[in-house]
């Protein structure tokens, strides 16, 4: 949304701006994680940029990038200038288990979004004063917006702390019979499943679905072979 800010950043940081993209009018610059705070400080304090308004901070999970040796997460920062009315998005890449530096000392508004990113993606922020979970509860296991977190995963229920021996039971079983999501990330990351939905998957020749005729045929052949191998029952002797 502002090419001026991008050129200003390029002249200031040179090669340290790793990439710039303009898609549908949205300007995004990519920086390394070690330059994250420095670029953010510059954007806030430089008079030509003057990004005084904090808009949003979020993350995106790309688990398939990890197999290529790339960092797994994207941290996205959205900013706006009140005086200049321009906007920019800054991206950096974070590895799994890597700690990102906090931006709360630059914009106080980053406090809750960073807590949310920690809650949902498990990216820890160094220097943040209050890294508690924010939307979920402390006993929650895992970080739900990671792609390898199954959407229908059941969480262990927390025992009542005051009544001894009381356990709450889930209202339904873990298996509800029908796949809940169109993408099975567990299968996809294991390289067994590239499809997006069962109907499309069958068209592109995906390797495994419940209704795949090849699987069904193979299973049928197995059963037939087992039946054939069994000796016929002897006729009862009279």
């Amino acid at each position: 949304m502002s090419a001026k800010v991008v050129s200003k950043l390029k002249s200031q940081f040179g090669d340290r701006i790793l990439d710039t993209t303009n898609f549908r009018g949205d300007e995004t610059v990519t920086v390394a994680l070690k330059d994250w705070v420095e670029v953010a400080t510059f954007l806030k304090e430089d008079d030509a940029c003057d990004m005084s308004m904090f808009v949003d901070l979020t993350a995106v999970d790309w688990p398939e990038r990890e197999t290529e040796g790339e960092p797994r997460f994207d941290l996205m920062l959205f900013l706006r200038s009140y005086t200049k009315k321009h906007r920019i998005a800054v991206r950096t890449k974070v590895k799994d288990q890597e700690k990102a530096p906090t931006l709360t000392s630059i914009w106080a508004g980053a406090t809750w979004p960073e807590r949310e990113v920690w809650d949902m993606f498990g990216i820890f922020f160094k220097g943040h004063r209050d890294m508690r979970r924010i939307l979920l509860y402390e006993e929650f296991e895992g970080h739900p917006l990671r792609k390898d977190y199954p959407i229908d995963k059941a969480q262990p229920l927390i025992e009542y702390r005051d009544v001894e021996g009381t356990r709450k039971l889930p209202p339904f079983g873990i298996e509800e019979g029908q796949p809940f999501a169109r993408v099975n990330w567990e299968e996809r990351l294991a390289g067994r499943d590239q499809q997006v939905s069962p109907s499309i998957g069958a068209q592109v020749g995906q390797q495994r679905t419940l209704s795949d005729s090849r699987v069904a045929a193979a299973e049928l052949a197995e059963v037939q072979a087992a039946v054939d191998a069994e000796p016929p029952p002897e006729a009862p002797q009279e």
Binding site: V55, D56, T58, V60, D61, M76, F78, W112, P113, R182, V183, V196, S197, I200
Partner: peptide, 22 residues
């Protein structure tokens, strides 16, 4: 705000809503 990512398939890759209330 809606920050949406498509991977070219019919399923959203990521839908982030920037809630003003938050």
């Amino acid at each position: 705000g809606f920050y949406i990512i498509s991977d070219g398939s019919g399923t959203p890759y990521r839908v982030r809503v920037r809630p003003p209330c938050w």
